[in-house]
Simulated assay, not measured.
Amino acid sequence: MKRFPTSLLNGYRNFMSGRYVDERERYRVLADQGQKPHTLVVACCDSRAAPETIFDAGPGELFVVRNVANMVPPYEPDGQYHSTSAALEFAVQALRVKDIIVMGHGRCGGIRAALDPNAEPLSPGDFIGKWMGLVSTAAEQIQGNSVMTATERQTALERISIRNSIANLRTFPCVKILEERGKLQIHGAWFDIANGELWIMDPDSRDFVRLEG
C-alpha cells in the first residue's frame, strides 16, 4: 500500500493539536447544526490562491467552489454535468448566501493557456482547452495587442474573465432575481500572488482598485 503523503499527515497532526483545539466547540456546533456560510467564493484551483487563507476565514464562513481560472459558465439547463453551476445553485438556493465573490489571481495558468495560440492539449479530451473557451473571444482580441507586454495581456484577461463570469452569474434566474431584490450582492476581486495585494472591482466603473492594507 502506498503511503499517504507525509507532509499532509504532519499537517493534520498540527491542525489537531493547534487550530482544532482552539475551535473545537465551533466544529461541534457546525457538525450538529449544519453550515451557514455568508459568502460563496468562486476561486481558481491554483494552490497559491486559497480563499480561506487569503480572507483568514474560519470553518463554516465561506462556501468555496474552485475550478481552473475561477470561471462561471452561463446558465445552461441542458442535462449535462455542471459542477460549478451545481455549487452555485446549492449556495444560493439552499444556503442562502448573501454575497458571491468571483476571485481571480495573477499568474493564472489557465489564463496563460488561453492566451497561447500554440498551446497543445494536455490529453485527448482537452478538457482545459474546452473550458477556457469561455474566454476565447476576449483572448483572441488581447492576443493581437502588440502594444501590451505579455504580463499586461495576462493581467488584462484575468480581470476581463472575472467580469465575464459575473455577467454569466446574472444569467442564472435565481441569482438575477435575488440581486434585483437586494438580497444578494455580487463582487469581483483579483489577488496578486507576488505581493499579497487584493484588488476589488468597483461595481459602477468595473475598474479594479487596490485594497489598502
Rank of each mutant, 00 (worst) to 15 (best):
A189S: 10
I166H: 08
I177Y: 03
F127H: 15
F191M: 04
P124A: 01
M148K: 02
V135E: 03
V175C: 09
F90R: 07
C44G: 10
I186A: 01
L30M: 06
L198R: 02
L178S: 10
L9V: 06
M71W: 02
E152F: 00
S205G: 09
I101Q: 00
L40R: 07
N10G: 05
E89S: 05
P173M: 11
L115F: 15
Q35K: 03
R13G: 11
R66L: 13
V209H: 00
T53F: 04
P121D: 00
V41C: 03
T6W: 10
L122H: 06
A57G: 05
I101D: 01
A114S: 05
L8G: 05
Q141S: 14
L169G: 09
H82Q: 08
H82N: 13
I193F: 06
G106F: 00
V102R: 14
N70E: 11
H187F: 01
S47A: 12
H105P: 13
Y75M: 05
Y81A: 10
Y81V: 11
D126Q: 04
S47E: 10
P37I: 12
W131G: 14
I200H: 04
V65K: 07
G125R: 02
D56W: 02
H82Y: 12
N168C: 09
V65L: 04
A114Y: 00
Q143V: 10
R159E: 10
V97R: 08
T39P: 09
A49Q: 04
F15Q: 06
F55S: 01
L8D: 06
